[in-house]
């Protein structure tokens, strides 16, 4: 299948990309790694006028240390995120979840920023972003602004980014001493999208769970922060009974889809099972 005719621009700076986008108008589409966009174009599900390829902007790649946070460039590829020492040390949940994205070939092209801006509810990384309280740094004609993850994902494939804005980098507060993490994903075949996924990070202290972060993949049109699960864990003994009880709250506030991957009630049940598994692995219980 052949994508529709389209113009192409490959700016070498963010400023140039922003001005190309502004000129092109709202039918322009930003091309990051292309691992979702190119399949969409081949299936003729979109007809953009111009692709603005961010692949030539070196400054959008890489991870840096900013004290209390790490900053991941939007064009950092999944394969580089997985191997990055700063990510592994300070955002282990991101490394764990990214390692489950699609397959090695896709991870060599697909990017962190692209996955977030695409905002597919079945994608693994939006749930991680909300669980880690990430902040999206976007640049548009009006300059730069920061959008908390909790306000970034608006609806199915919809984000708070304006059409003229580019997601430049993502700031992730460090979770260091005592924190451990796990991403539990259920899919029906190799490389398939998650039917449901659970991103969990916990901080153990003196036999109790001092803090917990839980995000759910594909349990709504946007990633879900499982606050009920987190509240049920905080300050409780780090044991199997605590985890089992907390996991029962996983469906709260969720609005899971019914599709070929599973019906809503099945997903709600699956979320409790996977939350229990994710927390057990993250907290080294059982």
């Amino acid at each position: 299948m052949i994508p529709p005719r389209v113009e192409y621009a490959a700016p070498d700076s963010v400023a140039e990309a922003v001005s190309v986008l502004a000129e092109a108008g709202e039918d322009a589409k930003v091309l990051a790694g292309g691992q979702s966009l190119l399949p969409v174009l081949r299936l003729r599900m979109a007809y953009p006028s111009v692709l603005v390829d961010l692949g030539r902007i070196d400054g959008l790649r890489g991870v840096r240390d900013e004290g209390a946070s790490i900053v991941v460039g939007g064009m950092t590829r999944h394969s580089d995120v997985i191997d990055d020492p700063l990510v592994r040390r300070h955002a282990a949940l991101l490394a764990a979840a990214t390692a489950t994205v699609a397959d090695p070939q896709v991870r060599h092209r697909g990017t962190f920023g692209g996955a977030l801006a695409h905002a597919d509810p079945a994608g693994d990384l939006p749930a991680v972003a909300v669980a880690l309280d990430a902040e999206m740094v976007a640049e548009g004609p009006g300059g730069r602004r920061t959008i908390p993850a909790s306000e970034f994902f608006l609806d199915y494939l919809q984000t708070a980014l304006d059409p003229g804005e580019i997601l430049c980098e993502v700031r992730i507060p460090k979770l260091d001493d005592g924190w451990s993490a796990h991403y539990e994903k259920f899919s029906r075949t190799a490389q398939a999208w998650a039917v449901v996924g659970v991103a969990a990070a916990v901080r153990r202290s003196n036999g109790t769970i001092a803090e917990a972060r839980v995000g759910l993949t594909n349990m709504s049109t946007t990633p879900v922060r499982a606050r009920g699960v987190e509240a049920a864990l905080t300050g409780k003994p780090a044991d199997a009974a605590t985890v089992a009880e907390a996991a029962m709250h996983a469906g709260e506030g969720a609005n899971p889809p019914s599709d070929l991957g599973g019906q809503a009630d099945y997903r709600s049940h699956l979320a409790t099972v996977l939350t229990r598994r994710a927390l057990s692995r993250a907290a080294h219980i059982g």
Binding site: G34, Q35, P39, P104, Q105, H108
Partner: peptide, 8 residues
């Protein structure tokens, strides 16, 4: 490794 159907 990349999938050449998914790279322009």
């Amino acid at each position: 490794s990349v999938k050449s159907c998914s790279v322009l």
